[in-house]
Design a protein around this nucleic acid. Structure first.
Length: 273
DNA sequence: AAAAGGACCTGGTGGC
DNA sequence: TGCCACCAGGTCCTTT
């Protein structure tokens, strides 16, 4: 589900409610996420204060008194700030109940997400150590992509979705970025020149920034921490538009699979070569 | 070493 | 209405 803008939306939504609040109780109803949620969370977290909420790629990092909670929403995860009395829904797996009687509730039907605990510096955690560049915190993203691309032989869409190259770009924003940059998703990265990568870097930053401002993309079930949908789906220019005329030139939008993921492109605006 | 493919899950949808 | 196949916003792990 959530790509960088959605995770950022959730981060901002929960930060005001949990930062500087003390965890009172942790309820683990279903620990079988992508990796098992540590049982010890229920005993070590109560009494600890959440100091900050930050984001690295699509991971949320809750800095606590004695370590970090590391949360990923996977494909279908949600984090809601609710009153703990609110009746449970199916797949409400974990509750973090705070002293102010607010509850951070983790919900995840497909259980592809994770909730982990680390006392090491987060940048050394195996899941975070190899993550690539943050697209919104660096100006030279185009040069970065170009330099790595020269050693590789893969389709550009797969390349920009690789979190070891650049973080946060999932299937929707990969499709949208390549359309706005006029680059065919199947083009080999080694054939893309610096100017093209610089343009791609610019549109990636623009699209992620606007998507955050719109509260993310809700195709089906993404919501922010208050349970509200995002609005960026109204801005999608290419994703999900197979068979429709391209908004720029009128050619029919094509649909193919790239690495098993749905991919959309305009054959005129995004020439193969 | 790099790239491709499989795996992990549930819920919704469309076809018969 | 029921059953089934297929699809979905992610990414790690295994195989080639």
């Amino acid at each position: 589900m959530p790509e960088l803008p959605e995770v950022e939306t959730v981060k901002r939504g929960i930060a005001t409610h949990v930062e500087n609040k003390i965890i009172q109780q942790v309820i683990l109803r279903e620990r079988r996420l992508r990796w098992e949620v540590p049982e010890t969370l229920a005993t070590i977290l109560p009494g600890q204060r959440v100091e900050t909420v930050t984001r690295r790629g699509k991971y949320l990092l809750l800095k606590c008194t004695l370590g970090h909670l590391l949360i990923h929403l996977g494909m279908s995860g949600r984090l809601l700030v609710v009153n703990p009395e609110i009746p449970l829904q199916k797949h409400d797996h974990v509750d973090f109940i705070f002293e102010n009687n607010q509850c951070l509730r983790y919900h995840d039907p497909r259980r592809f997400g994770c909730i982990l605990w680390t006392t090491e510096p987060t940048e050394q955690h195996p899941l975070l150590a190899n993550l690539g560049m943050e697209p919104l915190e660096n100006r030279a993203i185009g040069e970065h992509l170009f330099n790595i691309a020269r050693k590789k032989d893969i389709a550009v869409k797969k390349f920009i979705m690789n979190n070891q190259v650049v973080v946060g770009i999932g299937n929707i924003y990969a499709n949208e970025s390549l359309f706005l940059a006029g680059i065919h998703p199947l083009r080999a990265v080694s054939s893309i020149n610096l100017a093209e990568f610089q343009q791609l870097g610019i549109v990636i930053q623009q699209i992620l920034t606007i998507a955050i401002a719109k509260g993310g993309t809700t195709l089906k079930d993404f919501t922010n921490s208050a349970g509200q949908a995002g609005y960026f789906q109204q801005e999608l220019k290419i994703y999900g538009r197979a068979g429709e005329p391209c908004g720029q030139c009128g050619a029919i939008v094509q649909h193919i699979k790239i690495v098993q993921r749905p991919s959309y492109f305009c054959p005129h605006c995004q020439p193969v070569e």
